[in-house]
Structure formats: structure tokens, C-alpha cells
């Protein structure tokens, strides 16, 4: 589904991501872990095609994000670390805008908006301007909008930040549902317990380099993910 090969991104002379290679298959929830400034967001933004990179290739379902950005973007959805949405729109206007862009027909969008907005409990607030939303509500709206066009690949940067425990639980279920239907999820998180329970595979990045990756069992062995992470960080 997603193939990143030898990805390198430099800011001036500093390498934010250094020769990163990883592959995510359909049906996988892939966690991406690393300390602040390790290169997680840079990698995710490069995958989504909103940031140029210096070397390497990124392909989604065999299509290059550089050569065929629109084909790739149609297959994926992105939720950034900070859900800065169009504050001049109401929640429902924003969802309809996203649905129009992804060419989701009106019946299907109504059905999906109802399904996801109801489960995340923001249906009643959809007529409110986004400027009046709390951080958590914006995050929920960003999640609903990401799920609207039934993407094959969902990229999320710290998706659980700002969500209440119930919404976090629902989001985990939604993530699993995507993967059960043949999709894939690639997300970064600092909540290692969540990653440990939710992810099929995990990659740990340090100073732009992948230092460990594989299935959860391969990466953590008999230890907890937290212990492994802290040990690797200390090296």
C-alpha cells in the first residue's frame, strides 16, 4: 500500500529524515514513534505530498506521490497534529466541502457523515462555526472528514491528542475497521500504551533515522514498548 524508499529531507544542512525506508501493507496499522523533532511529522507530510523532499521515492499503491500526486491523494486521507480547519465554515460546510473535493455523492456522504459524526458525538454541533469548536471537536471533525471518502490509506499525526477517552476508543475501532476492510493506517504517537495495543507494526525513528521496525513482537520482544523505546533512545 505505502512504500517509502531512501527518503531524505534536509533543512539547510541538517537532515530531518535520513535515508528512511519502510513499507506498509494493506490491513496494517503502522505506528510511528520517536521523540520530538525526530522526523515523524516531516515523514508523514512527505508521504501526503504537502512537503517536498530531497531524495528517495514514496509510492502509494504503486503510484508515485511526486509524479501522480492527485491519484495518490485520492487514495489517502491526512489528519495533521494540529487540526487547523477553515474557521469561517461551519462543521457541516467543511464536511460537504471535503466530500465535494473527493467527489463523494450526496447520498453516500449523508450516510457517512451521520455514521461517523454520530459515533463521535458531534452531529448536533455541525451547524456551529468551526471557530466556536474546542480543540477536541476540531479533531473529531478532522477525523470525520478523513473517513468521508473511504480512503485506502490514512495518515495521522498524533490523532489521539485532544480526544476524550470515549472518542479515543471509538477512533481505535474506526482504525481497525479500515484495516479489516483492506485499508492501512500510518500514524505517529507519543502514547506508547496505545501503540502497543493497537499497532500491528511499529517503526522507531531517532534523529531522522529508523532505528528499529517490524511487527510489535519483533520490536519489543518480552519487554514493553516503553522500555524498548527508552532503551533505544538512551543509546
Amino acid at each position: 500500500m505505502l512504500k517509502i524508499e531512501h527518503l531524505t529531507k534536509k533543512y539547510s544542512d541538517k537532515k530531518a529524515v535520513d535515508d528512511l525506508t519502510l513499507q506498509i501493507k494493506s490491513g496494517e496499522i503502522y505506528g510511528f514513534i520517536g521523540h520530538n523533532g525526530a522526523g515523524k511529522t516531516t515523514t508523514l507530510r512527505s508521504v501526503v505530498g504537502i512537503q517536498q523532499f530531497d531524495e528517495g521515492t514514496i509510492t502509494i499503491d504503486g503510484h508515485s506521490i511526486i509524479d501522480e500526486p492527485i491519484v495518490c491523494k485520492k487514495m489517502l486521507a491526512y489528519i495533521p497534529d494540529n487540526p487547523d480547519l477553515y474557521e469561517f465554515m461551519s462543521g457541516i460546510q467543511y464536511l460537504n466541502f471535503v466530500a465535494d473535493i473527493y467527489e463523494v455523492d450526496s447520498n453516500l456522504r449523508a450516510e457517512r457523515i451521520k455514521k461517523y459524526a454520530d459515533s463521535l458525538e458531534i452531529s448536533k454541533d455541525l451547524a456551529q462555526p468551526i471557530s466556536a469548536y474546542s480543540h477536541g471537536m476540531k479533531q473529531k471533525l478532522a477525523i470525520v472528514s478523513a473517513w468521508l471518502h473511504d480512503p485506502k490509506l490514512i495518515i495521522m499525526d498524533e490523532p489521539f491528542v485532544g480526544l476524550d477517552p470515549k472518542a479515543s476508543h471509538i477512533l481505535k475501532g474506526m482504525m481497525r475497521e479500515v484495516c479489516d476492510n483492506g485499508g492501512a493506517i500510518f500514524f505517529s504517537t507519543h502514547v506508547l500504551e496505545v501503540a502497543e495495543k493497537l499497532c500491528d507494526k511499529v517503526a522507531i525513528i531517532k534523529a531522522g533515522k529508523l532505528i528499529r521496525m517490524g511487527s510489535m513482537e519483533e520490536v519489543k520482544g518480552d519487554d514493553t514498548l516503553e522500555e524498548v523505546f527508552l532503551e533505544l533512545e538512551g543509546e
Binding site: D100, S106, R109
Partner: peptide, 29 residues
């Protein structure tokens, strides 16, 4: 607090959606 009441919305083309977005921004400020 304006409560949302579900209603069917006609789908727009990508260009019209982007144009409506620009108009919404203009009219909101």
C-alpha cells in the same frame, strides 16, 4: 447554539466547491 438538522445537500464539482470556499471566506470576514 445552532443545532444541526440533517438535510440533503447537492454535490458540487471540485471547482465549484473551491469557489464556494473562497466566497465563504470573503463573506465571513
Amino acid at each position: 447554539h445552532i443545532e444541526y438538522k440533517e438535510k440533503k445537500v447537492a454535490a458540487k464539482s471540485q471547482f465549484m466547491a473551491l469557489l464556494s470556499k473562497e466566497f465563504s471566506r470573503f463573506a465571513s470576514s
